[in-house]
């Protein structure tokens, strides 16, 4: 498997090198942000707590297992991403407001999201591995630069700004061509799915559901 180490904030020429399925490690600065941050900035119209473009263009969908020590310093233990598909409705506006060019999260978004929101903004998506390699990622965090909206959003949803080194591993899910590793793999899995169910009869009582096709994802 191809492996690459990138500096954060990320540069467009580096992002162009990424292909779905590559292994990535990061050095530099990134920030965490998920629904709490998106709601405040995008839905409630509050200004971001820092000038994002000046800090980093890498947004990690993450809640650290962290604590604030009595002296006000921070203890960060493990770090793991949260499932990103829930945030797709905010992505286009987030890229506009923040200048973000790389999302790191869990499980990716749909190929359609990548083509509609990511590719036009020159942004890529990296997924954590496993999930989650919380201890390995915790090791990669060298310093908490600052924490914003801790009181308003709590430890899990606050915006943490991390200085990182050899931070990873991550896998490229969405590249600048609009490919999704997960959907490439889904299509291969789907091709054999009928075999797994071969010969099993349908149960007597059906269920309500939004999809009855096993080829569909439920996200």
């Amino acid at each position: 498997m191809k492996e690459i180490r990138l500096k954060a904030p990320v540069q467009p020429e580096d992002l162009a090198k990424l292909e779905a399925g590559m292994v990535v490690y990061l050095d530099g600065v990134l920030y965490t942000g998920r629904e709490g941050l998106y709601r405040r900035v995008l839905d409630e119209g509050l200004g971001p707590p820092v000038e994002l473009a000046a800090v980093s263009n890498v947004n990690f969908h993450c809640s650290p297992a962290a604590a604030v020590r009595p002296d006000g310093s921070y203890q960060v233990g493990a770090v793991t991403a949260t499932a990103s598909f829930r945030f797709s409705k905010w992505m286009s506006r987030w890229f506009d407001v923040s200048g973000c060019r790389m999302i790191i999260g869990k499980g990716g978004m749909s190929e359609e999201d990548y083509r509609q929101h990511f590719v036009p903004n020159g942004a890529v998506y990296l997924t954590t591995v496993g999930y989650g390699t919380g201890a390995l990622l915790g090791r990669g965090i060298k310093r908490v630069r600052s924490v914003h909206w801790l009181e308003e959003l709590g430890i899990a949803q606050a915006m943490w700004i991390f200085e990182v080194e050899a931070f990873g591993p991550f896998l490229v899910d969405g590249d600048l061509k609009g490919n999704s590793l997960f959907e490439i793999e889904n299509r291969k899995v789907n091709a054999k799915l009928t075999d797994a169910y071969a010969g099993l009869k349908e149960p007597a009582l059906r269920r309500y559901g939004e999809t009855t096709s096993r080829r569909d994802e439920v996200i």
Binding site: C62, S63, P64, A65, G77, A78, V79, T80, T82, G130, Y131, G132, T133, G134, A135, L136, L137, G138, R139
Partner: peptide, 16 residues
């Protein structure tokens, strides 16, 4: 590797 790092560093294996 992650489990080994968790034990060595005495940190949680997953942040969730």
């Amino acid at each position: 590797e992650n489990w080994e790092a968790a034990e060595t560093d005495r940190r949680a294996m997953c942040a969730d």
